[in-house]
Every structure is written in C-alpha cells, then in structure tokens.
Design a protein around this nucleic acid. Structure first.
Length: 426
RNA sequence: GGGCCGGUAGCUCAGCGGUCAGAGCAGCGGACUCAUAAUCCGUCAGACCCGGGUUCGAAUCCCGGCCGGCCUACCA
C-alpha cells in the first residue's frame, strides 16, 4: 500500500475473535427478530471435492471439471435467511433513494434483480471446517457472505482498543465495491442490516473493471493468469503512484468498465502530465525567475481569467459528491489548458522586451503564479504527491477547496522547479 | 441456460428523441520560443455493431441477432 501512496486505518480479518463474537451476536439478533429458519439447500455435489458446484463449474455431461466424475444431486439442511421478507422494505429503499446505488446503471441492475422477486438464501454451511460457528447450532458455520459483510460494522467496535468508533463512522456515507459483488452489497447487505436493526449506508458506489485489449482486438478482464496486465508496480517504479492513479481515473470513466494499455498510459503521461501540467509549472516558474527574480507581483490577478477559473471548484465539488470522479478530473484539467492558452495569448517574453509593458507583465505573472496554486488545489485528489512538490516550490500549503479562486498575496515567491513528470530518457 | 451492462471517428471516451453526431490523443498544415522540442491555432476523420419496428423525426425508444463483460452458495 505505501507504494500506491494509500493507507488503511485497520485491516480486518474475519478470523479475528472480536469479529466472530460480533457476528454471532448480530446474527443471533437476526434470528431472535424472526428472520432465520431451517431449510434445505439442494445442488450438484462432487463427492471427491466434498463441495457443491455452481452451474459455471459444471463440466460437460454433468461432471466435475477437476475429478472428471459424475456429480450427484444432494441436499443439505441449512439455516436460511428470510430475504423474501425484505422485498417491500427494499423496494421502498430504492424508490426513496434513487442514488442509493451509484452510478445509475448499477442502480438499475440492482433494482432489476429486486424486481424479479427475492428468494430466501442459505445462511449456513454444514460441511465446512472453517468459518464462524453458528451459536445455536455448532455443527454449522455461517455462509461466508453473512460473516464477511458484517465486518464493515464489527471492525468499528474493536479496531481501536478501548475506543468504539461505531457511533462516529456508522452509517457509512459511501461503501465502495466492484461490480462483481453488486448483489451482495445492494440487496443482501441492506436486508441483513434491516433484519439486525442496524442503519444502512447512505450510498453504495460501484466501480467497473479495467480491461486490456489483446492482439486480436478482443477485450478481457485484466488478470494475472491471462498475462494481460498493465503492470501497476512497473508503472509506479517508473513514473510514480500519482501517474497511475491519474491514468486510471482519466482514461476510464469511474463506474464503467474501460480499456487500459501501456501505450495509452504513455500517451497520457507525456501528453498531459508532462507536457501540459508539468511543463506549465516549469515555464511559469522559469518566467517569474527570468523576469522578476522569483518575486511574484503582489497584485490582483487577471479578472477575465478569474471569471473562468473561479467557478471550477464548485463544479468539481458537486461532481465528487456525486462520485463522478472522471468528470471532476476533466473539469479540473480545463484549468491546466486554460493557463497554457493564457501564456500564448499574453506572450510574456514579448512583454518583457519593452519596459512600458511592465504593468501588464506583472499582471500576467501574478495570474500564472496564483493560477498554478489554484490548479494544485483542484488536482490534489488525483495527484497528491506531485501537488505537494509543486506547492513546496511556490511556497503554499493550503489545500482547502475554498481557496481555489484567483487571489493576490498567497504566492509571494517561487523557486525554479524540477520537472514534475520527467520523461523517460530514450 | 437465465439475469444485467456495454458495442459511437485509427485510439480512449462523451452524447442517450429534435440544428450538418462531439472531445482529447494520433495524422496533416501553420504560429511561436518562456518551458520537460514543450505550447498555441487550424484541419482531415465516423455505415453511431447488424436487421426489423414505433415516430413528423432515432446513435438516442421497442423487438430480434452478433460480439465483449459481470453475476448465477464459500477470495472478499
């Protein structure tokens, strides 16, 4: 995780004794509330594997793909969770909270599943040697999802010994998941919380998958076994975690599946990070040094540019609140492009040739200096390490979105800056 | 098999009932020199997967098909 420049507050293991105790307590409550009953699970079973097979795991002729032997129809007595009892409560949840699941197409998918009608689901397993024991029936353990989902809540109670964080952090504002576990988190999970009398998360945000395009033109889910990976550690080693983070959120709309490639990365890294953003920082600091010895004129920045850049922060805030991370980045990037265009429009090198233009040159340099700061504030969520480098060079450190408007006096002096995104040498 | 999602310029994507279908990149032409030969301007570019249907009008809605993705009880 340090290599990705991310951190976690706590790492939950579902084998944690505190977790087991919480799971048992909560599911006992679910049972006491009348949502657990005995039932029978029936499916195709491989005696050699000692396991039931899903339909996708069944090979030609109803055989086990591993052992090549015939599967048998077997049934097992299980405890069941009365999911069907939550048909109406869930329909109301979806009707009242049209952005309970984001983005919209995932909401539709979850809602469509709900509309098909909910069946009760098996809550326990009898033939497993690991898992959380069912307290009222020690021969069974809980089905992994009912154990695992609950860690979102249970971890809060014991992650900080002596300090129960549940009140502070539950209900969660956002739970972020991948699209493959949509059903568990948008149907089973809220139903389970309702059954236990717990509060629901405000939003479940669903991200897509990154796909790689093969030589034959088809797209596949990226996976190590297929060998079609954009190696994240190689990218980090060569270009930094910022670049990887930026690329993934820029190239693929957050929430959708999308294709990534090494050539796509190279194009965005050089074209956008190095040439547009990194070079804007270089040319700006270089000109302030060349024409004003690094001192930023203490004057009000260009009003026309302020009119264009000042509204961006509010737009970005709204998009991020709506989990539209790619669109938000797109808006932030318009500021980079606008300032590069401003440099061309004003041509400071031409202004510098005649002292009678000194006032205008002051204005342009002051605008660029504070514009660079504004851009840093806007881009920090995507490029944290790079923005910190930039801010060190221009002598500021306030990242509050409320400061993302052009103003005088914040950037007083800049240092020349090494390329923020150096290009590979060859 | 069933459910759901997607298939738009060479590439990555936006548009999702109504001007000649858009952006960035790549390509081509030009300007400029402050800068990591970077930037800026202009320009070329598409059977909107295929076939039906609804409509005054569809990339946009409906039906069918093809291709790709995810789920369909134990990694979460």
């Amino acid at each position: 995780m340090p290599r990705l420049n991310v951190s976690n507050d706590f790492f939950v293991r579902t084998s944690d004794p505190e977790h087991k105790a919480c799971v048992q307590e909560i599911l006992t409550r679910v049972k006491d509330n009348g949502y657990v009953e005995l039932g029978t699970y029936e499916g195709w079973y491989c005696p050699r594997c000692a396991d039931f097979k899903t339909e996708s795991e069944i090979a030609e002729g109803n055989t086990c793909p591993i052992h090549k032997i015939a599967l048998v129809r077997e049934s097992e007595e299980n405890w069941f969770f009365k999911l069907s009892a939550f048909q109406e409560p869930l329909e109301k949840l979806f009707a009242d909270n049209p952005d309970f699941v984001r983005p919209r197409h995932r909401f539709n998918e979850a809602h469509a599943f709900l509309s098909q009608g909910l069946q009760d689901v098996s809550l326990s397993r009898g033939k497993l040697t690991w898992g959380v024991e069912v307290p009222w029936d020690p021969e069974h353990v809980f089905y992994v999802w009912f154990d695992a989902l609950l860690n979102y809540v249970t971890a809060l109670s014991y992650a900080r010994p002596g300090d129960d964080l549940t009140e502070r952090f539950w209900p969660a504002q956002i739970q972020l998941i991948g699209k493959d576990i949509l059903k568990f988190h948008t149907i089973y999970w809220p139903a389970l919380l309702m059954a236990a009398g717990l509060e629901l998360p405000e939003h479940v945000v669903v991200h897509g998958f990154l796909l790689m395009r093969d030589a034959d033109g088809t797209e596949h889910k990226m996976s190590k076994s297929l060998g079609n990976v954009l190696d994240p550690f190689q990218i980090i080693d060569d270009f930094g975690a910022d670049a990887l983070r930026y690329y993934c959120l820029r190239e693929v709309r957050f929430g959708q599946d999308g294709a990534v490639s090494t050539s796509g990365f190279a194009a965005r890294y050089e074209g956008e990070l190095a040439n547009e953003f990194g070079n804007l920082a270089s040319r700006t600091t270089a000109m302030i040094h060349r024409y004003r010895d690094g001192e930023v004129p203490a004057i009000q920045p260009d009003h026309a540019i302020a009119q264009e850049l000042d509204p961006l922060a509010a737009q970005i805030e709204e998009l991020i609140d709506a989990s539209e991370l790619t669109q938000a980045l797109d808006v932030a990037w318009t500021a980079v492009r606008r300032l590069n265009r401003y440099v061309e429009e004003q041509a400071p090198w031409a202004l510098a040739k005649d002292d009678s233009n000194a006032a205008q040159l002051d204005l342009v340099l002051a605008t660029l200096a504070d514009g660079l700061r504004l851009i840093g504030v806007l881009l920090h969520p995507w490029l944290p390490a790079s923005v910190e480098k930039l801010f060190a060079a221009i002598g500021v450190d306030d990242l509050a979105l409320s400061t993302a408007r052009l103003q005088p006096g914040l950037v007083t002096r800049v240092e020349r800056i090494a390329p923020l995104f150096p290009k590979p040498q060859d």
